[in-house]
Amino acid sequence: MSEMSTGLTATLILLAIALFVHEPWRWIGIFIGNRIDVQSPWFQWVRSVATALVAGLVMRLILFPAGALAGLGLGVRGLAMASGIAAYFLLGRTLAVGVGTGALVLVVAQSLFG
């Protein structure tokens, strides 16, 4: 498969995978979402499933990261995440402040303890 990573063959493979095994989930979701009664317990349940799923993704990205983030210690990553959440709640619930604080703490903590 790796020898096909360049060129038109790879483009066609990527297109086929995107169109036939990835995009259909979106189509099914739209189909269901178009018909579901938003007051029904089913809709409320799907909403909770989507929320828990994204929260799980967050933990995976922090605890089991890929690439350069994996080079930083777990303590540094955890501290930065906790600082971002704390800054969000303590400093006026602004998204940019929380994200910015988290990034800043990551850099400082890595420079001090890394």
Partner: peptide, 12 residues
């Protein structure tokens, strides 16, 4: 991709 399904349902 399955995770996109519930997200599409709730935004629709």
């Amino acid at each position: 991709g399955i995770r996109l399904l519930p997200m599409c349902v709730v935004l629709m």
